[in-house]
């Protein structure tokens, strides 16, 4: 391909500098062969661009959905889930009191509870003994919008929007049942971020880490 033809192609792609554009347009204007080449290639591109688009068959989506395989967990994942999956323990007040008394006797002293995550606090929601309100904080002073998406909201990015505090910390309180939840922050609607203060992390399958939150019954 000679230099002039390369310039014609780059001209058609809109990639020439003003100087290059002026030079090649002068050449095209003065050389009938080159002018014809330019017009024909331009016409070929125009023909391709304006060719009709086909519409996929009406049953296309249902056909694809009907052919999707059922996802099966690997044995390793099943074993991991069996060993480490969060579980909900059912209890009653008598058992709880007995357990507390036992702990007091065993340790014969002060029982201190300290969460691993100082940005998350747990409190019982009024009137709902099996629901825990979880406060999630995220420091991002430059963000315009922060949402949290996770297992608890089916990874929807617009369901749990954090409120900005004056100190650049974004906060939300979410009522959750006891269990283990994966989550990530979505900053400004486009950047997915792992919580730097999460209790633990889990591979998200995309080469990044999900933050993990465990909600226990108090």
């Amino acid at each position: 391909m000679n230099r002039d033809m390369e310039l014609i192609h780059r001209l058609l792609d809109g990639e020439l500098s003003e100087e290059e554009k002026r030079d090649i347009l002068i050449k095209i204007g003065s050389d009938p062969v080159l002018k014809n080449e330019f017009k024909e290639i331009e016409k070929a591109i125009h023909t391709a661009k304006n060719s009709d688009r086909l519409i996929a068959p009406a049953s296309f989506t249902s056909d694809v959905m009907g052919r999707l395989p059922i996802r099966k967990d690997s044995h390793i994942k099943m074993a991991k889930d069996f060993l480490f999956r969060g579980r909900v323990l059912r209890w009653n007040m008598a058992t709880a009191l007995a357990s507390v008394c036992l702990l007091i006797i065993v340790f014969a002293g002060v029982f201190q509870f300290k969460g691993k995550h100082d940005l998350i606090t747990y409190t019982n929601a009024p009137g709902e003994s099996n629901i825990t309100t979880v406060r999630i904080d995220f420091y991002s002073p430059d963000a315009k919008k922060v949402a949290v998406a996770g297992d608890f909201n089916k990874w929807k990015v617009d369901e749990n929007i954090l409120k900005r505090q004056e100190n650049g910390i974004w906060t939300i309180e979410i009522p959750l049942k006891p269990g283990k939840y994966n989550y990530m922050f979505v900053v400004d609607g486009k950047v997915w971020m792992t919580d730097p203060n999460a209790e633990s992390y889990q591979d998200d399958g995309f080469g990044f880490k999900n933050s993990v939150l465990k909600v226990a019954k108090l």
Binding site: M1, M5, E6, H9, L12, E40, I41, K43, A44, I45, A48
Partner: peptide
């Protein structure tokens, strides 16, 4: 570029 020229 070559594809365009052949297409033309």
């Amino acid at each position: 570029y070559r594809g365009r020229e052949m297409l033309k």
